[in-house]
Structures are given as C-alpha cells and as structure tokens.
C-alpha cells in the first residue's frame, strides 16, 4: 500500500468531506432518540436473550441436571461448580450447584454444553446487587419449577441408565434386557 496515497487522501483532497461529515453529524440533533428510558420504559427481550441462568425440570418435574460437569467445563470464566450425586435408584442430580454471577459473562456456553437441557439462560438481566456475595447463586436460587425453553424433553427417557420408575430396556428405542441364559437364537 502506498503510504503517500493514504496521506493525500485524508489531508488534501477531502477538506470538504470533513466539513460535510461534521454537518451530517450536526444534523443528528434533529433525529429521533434511540435511548430506551429504562427503568421507566422496559426493554423488549427476545426469547433467546442470554440472561439469568436457571436449572429446569423435566416434564415429570424431576430435576433435569444430572451433574455431568459439562457446563462447568465449558464455562470460560470457571464460575460454575457442582457436585454430582445419586439417589438410591441411581438417578443422578447435583448435590450442590453454584454459579458465581459476579464472574459470569452470560456467554451461554453452559447452555450449549448441557446434554439434558437443564441449564438455560433466560431473558432476564435484572439481577444487580449491592453486595457481591449475593451474586453467588446456589441450587435453591437456580432451580425453577418448569421446563424453560425446551418443553417435553426428558433425558432419562433416552439414556440407557436405569433409574427409579424406569428400568433397563424401558427407554425410547430400547429393546428389553438380554436374557443371558437363553439359548434361543
């Protein structure tokens, strides 16, 4: 690139374009304001807005989160921590689930990583606090009694693992358990 040309372009030939652009800017005085006067005026958020994070439940009101740690691994600021545990029937759920919203950047990677649609970002950003400690959300603050954006999905209906109320072979696209002792072809 010829350095000269650039220099000439701006300094010599475009005196009038500079004045023109100043004039155009000046004219913006008479344009409509774009500002939304929040909080008197509310913002319209789309359904895919990445705001507050919630943990949802499946259609049978069971916790969707199975404690697989993928959200935590995907989190670029490492603000999710949890511990998986199991109920007596082998169903996994998080023993604790903590999001430090003072670190969260609302990137939505956790939602993308979640294999069970448990963790979801919802269109709500009004979560300011005067005390930073209050931005640490525990499971009780995160878990909602609904399915969120993905109604109808139940991970355990497709997973091979047997849990209370769903034995081996009862998931979708599963044949009944093999009888190991059978000699039939």
């Amino acid at each position: 690139m010829d350095n000269r040309l650039l220099t000439m372009d701006i300094t010599e030939t475009n005196m009038f374009s500079i004045i023109q652009s100043m004039w155009l800017t000046f004219l913006h005085m008479f344009h409509k304001r774009e500002t939304i006067q929040y909080p008197e005026e509310k913002v319209k958020l789309t359904t895919r807005w990445r705001g507050r994070i919630v943990l949802t439940r499946d259609p049978d009101m069971g916790e969707r989160c199975v404690g697989c740690y993928l959200c935590a691994a995907a989190c670029p600021v490492d603000c999710i921590s949890l511990q998986a545990t199991e109920d007596e029937h082998g169903r996994r759920y998080p023993e604790f689930f903590r999001i430090n919203f003072s670190r969260c950047i609302f990137c939505g990677y956790c939602e993308e990583a979640c294999p069970t649609y448990a963790i979801q970002l919802i269109p709500d950003f009004e979560m300011g606090e005067y005390n930073r400690q209050n931005l640490v959300y525990e499971k009780k603050d995160l878990l909602i009694d609904g399915q969120g954006k993905y109604p109808g999905y139940n991970y355990y209906k497709v997973a091979g693992l047997a849990i209370g109320g769903k034995d081996k072979g009862e998931a979708e696209h599963e044949s009944p358990p093999v009888d190991v002792k059978s000699l039939l072809p």
């Binding site: 220099t7 100043m22 000046f26």
Partner: peptide
C-alpha cells in the same frame, strides 16, 4: 465537541505529514 463527534483520528504519520508539509 462537534469535531469529536464527527471525525476519526488520523494515523500518527498522517498527522506529522499534515503539520509539516501542508
């Protein structure tokens, strides 16, 4: 202030060129 609102910043060498040569 209007200048600030409407004009982009030139490169350093352009600034010097403009000053000394024009």
């Amino acid at each position: 202030i209007l200048l600030r609102a409407s004009l982009p910043r030139p490169r350093y060498d352009q600034l010097m060129d403009f000053g000394w040569k024009i």
